[in-house]
Design a binder for these strands. Sequence first.
DNA 1: ACATAATTGTTTGGTAGCTAACAAATTAGG
DNA 2: CCTAATTTGTTAGCTACCAAACAATTATGT
Lengths: 152, 152
Amino acid sequence: MNNRVNSEFSSVGGWAKRCYFAGRALMETTLRPYDLGSTQWYVLWHLATNGPTAQRDLVRLLDLERATLSGIVAALVRKGLVDQSAGGKDQRQRTLQLTEAGKTLWSDLPDLHFIHDAAFGDIDPADLAIAIRVLQTATGRLHDLLGKGNNE
Amino acid sequence: MNNRVNSEFSSVGGWAKRCYFAGRALMETTLRPYDLGSTQWYVLWHLATNGPTAQRDLVRLLDLERATLSGIVAALVRKGLVDQSAGGKDQRQRTLQLTEAGKTLWSDLPDLHFIHDAAFGDIDPADLAIAIRVLQTATGRLHDLLGKGNNE
DNA sequence: ACATAATTGTTTGGTAGCTAACAAATTAGG
DNA sequence: CCTAATTTGTTAGCTACCAAACAATTATGT
């Protein structure tokens, strides 16, 4: 009787949600001693790996909304981990880079690869590829339906 | 050089996140005219489909934390859509049920099946099954690592 | 019986995400 | 050149999620 809607909740969509939150929870538990959230970690990771970056580029690289990133950057600046400077020729843009404290903290952080490895490490790569393709296709369709086809 | 972490971001985990948020965004856009959020819709759906339910059971049925559901129920009660009564013999428990306004609103809501159908409708069922199995397995591993194996 | 455990719900404070509206700076068009 | 559109970042207000601490109630154990 309620198979139809129930299937929406307990199938790919539902498991995508559960898997996302389970991974995020593990990241946040691991990072809690360092007072960092999961997306804050991604920003630090990018700055540590790729050096100073324009905030406007991070929006696309991390696939967030401007407003979301703005808040996350504000938190990292408040903690003294990231410097947000108005440097360049375009006075609208902000450049983000690690402060000394940010570099020090980054070098102290544990390696988070174990999360990905534990979750997906010994799953058949062919199955992984199929799962990615299914999620990617579904995401594209949903974005299309949402009004703008931003499935690049 | 950054293939390892990058793969964590742009593979199953990353797509699970994008897929979850894309589906949720479409739900919320559809429900915005009715002033309902996606999880609020799930609560109404459950009450409309299964009748009065103990709040404590909904926690498990919708796979949320007590605190999360508490806030969502408070919003629905504030909007006059749900009645939260302290009825039974156990004075701690609350029973939730739709009010008349809640039943009326529910009957006016559009059918959301189109979201699931659009996203997954014409994907090979065998691939869907593999995707579910991958996500389910990964979620179980993550839960285990998080300390308590609640992979029922 | 009575102190202690466990259960149920709420509150507080935090992260992460979105839209909409705004300000400032830059770019385009006429 | 000057107005209008676009880009960039912030703010405000919302949903949804979590953990930790609290109050109230019920269940347990001695």
